[in-house]
Every structure is written in structure tokens, then in C-alpha cells.
Write a protein that binds this DNA or RNA. Structure first.
Length: 686
DNA sequence: ATTAGGG
DNA sequence: CCCTAAT
């Protein structure tokens, strides 16, 4: 019946694939789209054997051949119809795309993987497969768009749902993707975004042991308590002898202490009987507290896992919003205990960089580095980006699942790219070698991380008239701040005005958050984004969503919680701050934030408060002692004036409060008395 | 979640 | 900016 299928089409055929072709597995529905992506992504990063990719990733010729990648989905559900379409503008460096999801049923969305023009004409690789996710959520799982909507609403997200690893596929828990590439790594590994899907596919070890802990997408019944796991899926994959790489896809429990389980073999251990809805657990959190299920820092999760979706049944409104929160401030993550993961090779610590057999790297390496040394990476997991979903209460769980699947599909459909983060900064120069970049087996690799990024050029449904069901959060999560995205990389989607928060920002000057903090490396802040005053949103999955934290952190003690990047206030911001404070006073930072910085997601009320503090200080010191971008004296004067005024007001208030009690019984006269007394107080201060 | 302050 | 304490 409603079986949803994801068809992956790679334009080229891959000739030599020993063992059971990946293609086959996909076709056999043994692997989910996520798996595929995860694998691809993982391979992309890790398996560099074949990457001499040289310069022109895609020639003009190639471009011409690029097929319009589209993720089109149309659904006619009652009176709602939505269409999801990605633009076909692809940057050269984006090589793989999930362009279509093909559903076997009429209302399914289709998506297909298409490889953009290959870097090299000589290679080829192709894979035409169909992944059926039908059984994922429910037997009758259909990925048709539901009435649900995925919104970009940020605030009130009463629900937190913990989703399982794959939308379809493994049961609850996050899936970890671990790679241990034993093969040589090309020195230009950082050139990730130039890898094409083809390349990835080429190197994709089809025979890698892929074990997924969790219910098999196909043979699962949600009620199956203990045996929900692996079956089918695992078996299939497990049957593949893993040789070249040790690829482990492990899904692990989301619980705080979730200790991942890595199964190398086809057999996986039972998950603790947890209420599962289909393949995903939904946890209700009656309290508005976020579940602290942050991922371990060194994990790269490929699921919403940690991101607990807040389940919310609190929202009585017609819609329930489910928010998959992912990027949560590192702060939260830092508290995670690193329960010793029972993972196979467990150590979080150990795997840093290890020597690999030296391999001759092709010409590219140029003789600069006579001895090419390999670097070994291990990515434990990737996380899926944040999604906001809105769906009618009347919707069924099944539709919910489908909606989520849809959302994810939409994201994936846009294509992903890999980002490399070093010391929290994005390494954009794809041509640098690892060594040049500072990634060598000798260094700590402390801050090396990878991230899945949305395809920049992708345009999400935001444009769809009538509001598309998919929306991405307009705010940019903190992570972004930490890992400043390359302006160019961040997809900026024009917001749907209807969802735009009140903009009474004084003068609206506060540039929405161009989150990409001007990082030193990125002075090329393209004007394009800067120019347009239009509010832009960064697709949820943008950058950070998929943050990947270094798999090899020192883990010692320093869960080095990276500090937020410094973002000096611009004069315009100071102006807005001053104006807001003049009006609201110094004790209402939250209001100040809302009023003047509502669009600047990276400015928290605490930041504003701190800024005010420094402004006051700055205003008091001599101009010579001031540093940074000079703030107009006029503004500083206003700061002092406002500060003095509000300090006085505050004092008055305190006086009142001290006096109020006395007259509290005199309801009738209290006001009069209080005011008269306060007047007196005012004089004292004045 | 906010506010206030010290660091 | 971060961190805490107190709301």
C-alpha cells in the first residue's frame, strides 16, 4: 500500500563493487535514506582514498549537465496541498543531491539522489535504488504530506519529542556512525565539499558491516517490546563482511546515559523495552524543561536523538508543535556525562589521530610533504538538524511520523555537504591540506569537527504560497555562533512574513542575525546577504544543526566548552540598545531584547545587560582608554543620562517597596501615601 | 526563564 | 562573554 520509497539515482554507474552492491541493498530496502546519507557523509569524510580531486570540480560542461535537482512533493490532502521544491541552483561544490523522493503511491513525495556532474569524467558510479520506508513508521507508513505543518516557530514549543535515530529504521536512540578508515586518506580531505556523490559512492564500502541497532524498518511492530531490534535490516547488513572499513552504524538509546552500543555483528542487543511508537520514541515532558539528553560532545549524531523533541501535549491549541531541538547551547551539552560508552572501541579518548600506513598519494600532494601520513578519523554520529513541525491534533501518530519523515526528507532532499570545523572555526579552504590546516596526527585534533550542512542553494518551501508545511527556524541556533558559518554557505531563506515576530525594533536596525559572525577567515562577508535587509532565516539544518563535534576530543577533563564567538556591538546596535534602555529602563533586559534585538538571535538579554554595563563603564572612562570601535560620544552621554535616570527610578522603587508595607492595609490611601513618600525619596536621590 | 553582579 | 546566585 502506501509505501514510500526513496529512489536514489546516481547518474553514473559504478562498475566495480564487490560483494553485494550497495545499490542492491538500497533497492532491497535494506537501507534507509538516512543510512545512505550517513554512509555517504561518512565516507565522504573518511574514505578519501579516491580523492585527488583536483581543481575544477565541475566544469562548465558538467554544470550544463547538472540536472535540475528537485525535490518535489505534492500532496493533495483535503484542501491542503503543498509543494516542496528545491532550487536547482547548485553551486559547484555541491556534489550530491537528493533530488527526488519517489513514492510508490500517488501522494508520496519523491526524492531521488542525483549526482551532479562528476568531477572526473572518468568515474562513474551509479546507484539506482529504492529505499522503502513504508514500514518505517507504520506498516502503512506513507510519506505523504500530512496536514501537518512544519513551522519555524521558535518559541512556544510545548512538545519535546525524542525521536529515534532514523526517521524510519532503527528504533529509538541515536545512531552512531563510526568509521574507522584504515585506508589512506587523501591529504586534501578538507576539500570535502568538492567531493561528489559519485566519489563518495565510489568509495562507499558496500560491504562494510553496517549494523543498526533498532528495529528493522521493515519488520517492526511498534508493540514488539523486546525484539524490536534488528532484524531484517541488521541481518542484511550484518551479513556483509566488513573489511575495508569498519563502519558501524549504531543506534543508541537516547537516554541521558545512553550508552551507545556498537554492534559489529548482525546481532544486536535488545533495547530496553521502551514505549516505542513505530521507530521512534516520543517522550512527553510535562515540564517545560528540556530533557537533558544532549549528545556527548564527541558524538556526531545522525539523528534527532539528543534533540529531544519536546512532546507536548500541553498545547491545547489546534496544533501541536513538535520541536526537535537540536542545537542546544553547548553549555547544556557540557554537562553530559560521558558515560563510558560501551561502544565497541569505546574510548572516546583514544581515537585521535593515528598513524596510518603511509600511502602514496597522487600527484596532488606535490612534494611538499615528502612523507604523507595518514590521519584517522572516527565520526561517531551525525545529528539531524532541527525541525519544527506543526500538525493537527487530530492527526494520527502515523501521520506525525510521516510528517517528520517528510521534513527530514525535505532536508535531505536539498543535499548535504560536509563542513569541517577546526577550533570551532570552519575550514573553508578546500584546497589546503590537512597538514596546512593544522590537522595532523601529531596534533591534538581537539577541535576538529565535521558538520553536515544544508545545501546552500537550497530553497525551502518557505516560498510556497499558502505556506508550505516545512519551515525552518528563523533563528539561528547558538551553534552557529560558535561555528560561524560561511556567509555563502548559510542558506538564507526569506521568511514568511506571517511568521515574522513583531518587528518593532527601534528602527529595525538590528540586522537580523546574520549569524555568520564575521570570522577572520571570512571577511568576504558577502554583501548579498548583508545588503538585503530582508530578514533571513537559516534553515534549521544549516550548519550547526548538524554540528559534529570532534570525535576525538581530548576527553580528558576538558570538555572544552567553546566560548561563544565574540561579536562586538556595532554602533547601530549600541544605538538601539540605548534607545531601548532609555525607554524601558535597566532592569528589563528581556524586554529590551524583545524590543530592539528580537531579530538578533545571538544577542541574549544577558548580553545586552552586559553591554550596557560596559557602555556605562566606557562612558565614564576617558576616550583614550576606550577600545574597539568608538562609540559616538553622544551615545555615551545618553548612556550616562539614562543610567542615572533609571538608577534613580530604581532607588525610588526600592524606597516604595520598603514603605509600601506600612500602608498596605490602607488600600484606599496607600497609593497616595506611597506616591508622596516616593516623591520625598526622589528628592533624596536628586 | 530572568535578573543582577562578579569574574 | 561566562558563571552563579537568587528570583
Amino acid at each position: 500500500m502506501d509505501s514510500m520509497a526513496i529512489r536514489c539515482l546516481l547518474l553514473h554507474e559504478q562498475p566495480d563493487q564487490p560483494g553485494v552492491p550497495f545499490k542492491k541493498r538500497v533497492e532491497d530496502k535494506r537501507i534507509s535514506a538516512f543510512d545512505l546519507l550517513a554512509t555517504v557523509a561518512g565516507k565522504l569524510l573518511l574514505d578519501k582514498e579516491s580523492t585527488p580531486v583536483s581543481s575544477n570540480t565541475s566544469s562548465a560542461e558538467d554544470k550544463s549537465k547538472v540536472e535540475k535537482n528537485t525535490v518535489k512533493e505534492e500532496r493533495r490532502d483535503g484542501n491542503q496541498s503543498s509543494k516542496l521544491e528545491t532550487c536547482d541552483q547548485y553551486s559547484n561544490d555541491r556534489e550530491f543531491i537528493i533530488s527526488q523522493l519517489v513514492s510508490q503511491t500517488n501522494d508520496l513525495r519523491s526524492c531521488s539522489f542525483r549526482k551532479s556532474p562528476s568531477l572526473k569524467n572518468d568515474t562513474h558510479f551509479g546507484l539506482t535504488s529504492v529505499v522503502t520506508t513504508s514500514d518505517c513508521s507504520e506498516r502503512s507508513g506513507v510519506l505523504k504530506l500530512m496536514n501537518g505543518k512544519i513551522k519555524n516557530e521558535m518559541g512556544s514549543l510545548p512538545c519535546k519529542v525524542e525521536t529515534g535515530p532514523f526517521l524510519c529504521g532503527a528504533s529509538g536512540g541515536r545512531i552512531k556512525l563510526e568509521f574507522e578508515n584504515k585506508g589512506p586518506i587523501h591529504e586534501e580531505l578538507d576539500r570535502t565539499d568538492k567531493l561528489s556523490f559519485r566519489e563518495v559512492a565510489d568509495t562507499c564500502p558496500l560491504e562494510d558491516p553496517v549494523v543498526v541497532d533498532g528495529k528493522p524498518p521493515l519488520l517492526v511492530s511498534s508493540d514488539s517490546s523486546g525484539k524490536t531490534h534488528s532484524y531484517g535490516f541488521n541481518n542484511h547488513l550484518g551479513s556483509f563482511p566488513g573489511k575495508r572499513d569498519d563502519l558501524k552504524i549504531v543506534s543508541r538509546d537516547d537516554d541521558e546515559k545512553s550508552s551507545g552500543c556498537t554492534y559489529l555483528g548482525p546481532i544486536k542487543k535488545p533495547f530496553r523495552p521502551t514505549p516505542l511508537i513505530g521507530d521512534r520514541r516520543i517522550r512527553k515532558t510535562m515540564t517545560s524543561k528540556y530533557l537533558k539528553v544532549a549528545p556527548r560532545l564527541n558524538d556526531v549524531t545522525l539523528s534527532n536523538s539528543d534533540e529531544n523533541l519536546k512532546s507536548a501535549y500541553c498545547d491545547r491549541s489546534a496544533y501541536k508543535r513538535i520541536r526537535s531541538e537540536r542545537n542546544y547551547p553547548f553549555k547544556k551539552r557540557k554537562f553530559l556525562h560521558y558515560s563510558s560508552v560501551s561502544n565497541s572501541d569505546g574510548g572516546i579518548s583514544s581515537e585521535g589521530i593515528s598513524d596510518s600506513p603511509e600511502q602514496s598519494i597522487n600527484g596532488n600532494a606535490s612534494g611538499v610533504y615528502p612523507k604523507m601520513r595518514g590521519v584517522k578519523f572516527r565520526i561517531k554520529s551525525f545529528r539531524v538538524p532541527e525541525l519544527f513541525i506543526e500538525i493537527p491534533e487530530s492527526a494520527t501518530i502515523g501521520s506525525l511520523k510521516r510528517t517528520v519523515m517528510e521534513a527530514v526528507t525535505a532536508i535531505l532532499g536539498g543535499g548535504l555537504r560536509i563542513g569541517v570545523l577546526l577550533q570551532g572555526k570552519k575550514v573553508r579552504d578546500d584546497n589546503k591540506t590537512l597538514l596546512q590546516t593544522g590537522i595532523s596526527r601529531d596534533n591534538q585534533m581537539d577541535a576538529l569537527g565535521f558538520s553536515l550542512e544544508p545545501n546552500p542553494s537550497q530553497t525551502f518551501p518557505s516560498h510556497c504560497p499558502g505556506g508550505s508545511p516545512l519551515k525552518f527556524p528563523c533563528d539561528t541556533p547558538l551553534p552557529l555562533a560558535r561555528y560561524p558559518a560561511t556567509p555563502g554557505l548559510v542558506t538564507r531563506v526569506t521568511h514568511d512574513p506571517s511568521h515574522e515576530p513583531h518587528m518593532h525594533n527601534l528602527g529595525n536596525f538590528v540586522e537580523s542575525d546574520h549569524d555568520s559572525a564575521p570570522s577572520p577567515t571570512d571577511m568576504s562577508l558577502d554583501k548579498s546577504t548583508t545588503d538585503s535587509k530582508a530578514l533571513v532565516a537559516v534553515p534549521a539544518m544549516s550548519v550547526e544543526a548538524l554540528d559534529v563535534v570532534p570525535a576525538h576530543r581530548k576527553s580528558k577533563r576538558s570538555e572544552v566548552v567553546q566560548r561563544r564567538i565574540r561579536r562586538p556591538f556595532s554602533v547601530a546596535e549600541v544605538e538601539a540598545l540605548v534607545q531601548a534602555v532609555e525607554k524601558l529602563g535597566t532592569g528589563r533586559w528581556r524586554d529590551v531584547k524583545l524590543r530592539a534585538f528580537d531579530n538578533a538571535k545571538h544577542r541574549t538579554y544577558v548580553d545586552l545587560k552586559d553591554k550596557w554595563k560596559t557602555l556605562v563603564h566606557t562612558a565614564r572612562i576617558s576616550p583614550q582608554q576606550r577600545r574597539g570601535e568608538p562609540v559616538p560620544q553622544e551615545l555615551l552621554d545618553r548612556v550616562l543620562t539614562a543610567h542615572a535616570y533609571w538608577s534613580q527610578q530604581q532607588a525610588k522603587q526600592q524606597l516604595k517597596q520598603q514603605q509600601q508595607p506600612e500602608s498596605c492595609l490602607l488600600l484606599y490611601n496607600s497609593t497616595v501615601r506611597a506616591s508622596s513618600r516616593s516623591d520625598g525619596g526622589e528628592k533624596n536621590f536628586g
